[in-house]
Design a protein around this nucleic acid. Structure first.
Lengths: 80, 80
DNA sequence: AAAATAATGCCGTTATAGCAGTAATTTATT
DNA sequence: AATAAATTACTGCTATAACGGCATTATTTT
């Protein structure tokens, strides 16, 4: 996934496009403003659930993929 | 993304398929075994970077998507 | 089936993520 | 261009994620 720097800019970009200040985003996401500050300053060490709250507000989805999951997906579709 | 329960089973499934014990996975991922134990027991509160280490070993990718990103992607491809 | 080996479960401790508050800086208003 | 308003930066504090160690349970070997 995104390196810390990328995550930082991803969040920042989405926040800016949404015309939100950090405090506003923090309030909407129901997290402290420090988290957003930290993330945007390249700190990769964020709780998954905290990040999720922020991503939800910004309409960003986390998708997990793997060869195994794709295989299972395919097998699922081939049944018949 | 996956709820905690789903993440738990996602990790467990991949670990099992890879024939790894928690301790082995922990060592490969260079994290404590407690983290894996916690995740597999449905604890959503995990550090992103810690989770990343585990997912790397299990060959699971985190992908972030959003309408905005897709728009930018499209605009990028339409240049010409 | 006993012994040995391995895996899982759980606990006390420690480092730190996330918190609210305040200072500094930037932007908007008159 | 002052003043006000808003945003960002930084700080000390607290709750807890992650750690290793030990106990328990499961699996394998003889």
């Amino acid at each position: 996934m995104a390196q810390s720097q990328e995550l930082a800019e991803l969040i920042r970009l989405h926040r800016k496009v949404a015309k939100l200040s950090r405090v506003q985003l923090a309030e909407l996401a129901e997290v402290g403003k420090t988290v957003i500050y930290n993330i945007e300053h390249g700190k990769e060490s964020v709780q998954l659930d905290t990040l999720q709250k922020i991503l939800n507000v910004l309409n960003i989805k986390i998708v997990l993929t793997s060869p195994l999951m794709e295989d299972l997906q395919n097998t699922e579709n081939e049944k018949g």
